[in-house]
Design a protein around this nucleic acid. Structure first.
Lengths: 196, 196
DNA sequence: CAAATATATTGAACACTGTTCAAAAAACAG
DNA sequence: CTGTTTTTTGAACAGTGTTCAATATATTTG
């Protein structure tokens, strides 16, 4: 039945929305079956009629947050000169988003998936985001003969790993100790990767 | 009394040893108060007479693992030509150690500390390890006029972030998908950072 | 050595976690 | 309204970390 499917999607949406709210406000540590269900207005047991387990539900949020992060970055880099300038602005905005929502960083890069969740393919969604956001500017640099395609691929990978590492250390270990020091490191990192 | 202190350190050692065993074999997910106490031969309640909470105990393992990792790396880079060659070998051995013990990577870079645990200063122990292991070779490169001191500092930081990010993505998201692809990325990353 | 005191160890209890399942409630069909 | 199907639900179970009063073990004292 179509009606059933619509209603099912609606209820699923309530649970997903509740989970996203908790992730953005209190973070991953506060995400629990009872907590989600309370916010969604259902019993905790109802959750299991719509999702096979809580991890399944949690990782369904990745798609939405990916889109939100994408919008955040494009909104904060509108009007910046294409090429290296916008590349740097893009990466900085990307980091800003996760600094603002540490729970989403945890969800994207830290929290273990349940088991073979090849369906959602979280890894692909997560790792392709920065690549996608930078794609136009890498292409710009290649077209302007500032880089070869191979160099761009290498730099893009290096940038993804560096940024992920810096965010990991800052969010989990407060390293560097201050936000200004973090920003300085981020700047040096990006400049270092783009130079030459 | 000195006798009391010796005995206290002994019992503490039993708990720490038990925790380290679990971390190396089953990983962080299997570390629980009851699990540790069972292995140590005590009741779970006894643990709280020696440590303020389980996180306190867990992070006391960092010091030992740091030393172990250090030994692992120096043992696996003995006889390698100093400079860029040994720098690369050092970083690769450093990664190997965490690939071998993913639970220790989690402990070092992921697991949240309880509260202000400034006493143990986990962050310092963790972030200074790679720096320490590479120090002699950076110095070598500077002395040989291959790098300026400032360049070395920048490259050292970039390397720490890249390596941490690559390990994070590989251990938590299986990205890249195979170990051989991971090693290839690691090689490219190190070469890229060391070049020029 | 025996009694009194101090210390160490312990299990019960509490509040949480995720998950399952049979019973109750609601929706739908005839 | 009755009978059937679907949805929702709380009880229950096995886990988690932590606290605390009771017990068992050492140590000191008479």
């Amino acid at each position: 039945m179509n009606k059933k499917e619509i209603q099912e999607q609606r209820v699923k949406g309530y649970f997903i929305e509740a989970t996203k709210e908790i992730l953005k406000s209190e973070g991953l540590k506060s995400v629990s079956v009872r907590n989600i269900a309370d916010r969604a207005g259902y019993s905790f047991a109802t959750l299991y009629n719509y999702f096979k387990d809580v991890k399944d539900l949690v990782f369904l949020c990745v798609k939405d947050f990916r889109a939100e992060c994408s919008e955040y970055v494009t909104a904060h880099t509108a009007g910046v000169t294409p090429g290296n300038r916008r590349l740097k602005a893009t990466v900085l905005a990307y980091m800003e988003y996760f600094i603002q929502y540490p729970g989403i960083f945890e969800l994207f890069f830290v929290e273990k998936l349940s088991e073979v969740d090849n369906k959602g393919n979280t890894t692909g969604l997560v790792t392709s985001l920065l690549t996608e956001l930078c794609a136009a500017d890498w292409k710009y640099c290649i077209d302007k003969r500032m880089l070869t395609a191979r160099e761009a691929t290498l730099k893009q990978a290096a940038l993804l790993y560096s940024i992920t590492g810096l965010l990991t250390l800052y969010l989990n270990r407060r390293y560097p100790e201050s936000y200004s020091a973090f920003l300085k490191q981020a700047g040096q990192l990006i400049d270092g990767q783009l130079k030459n």
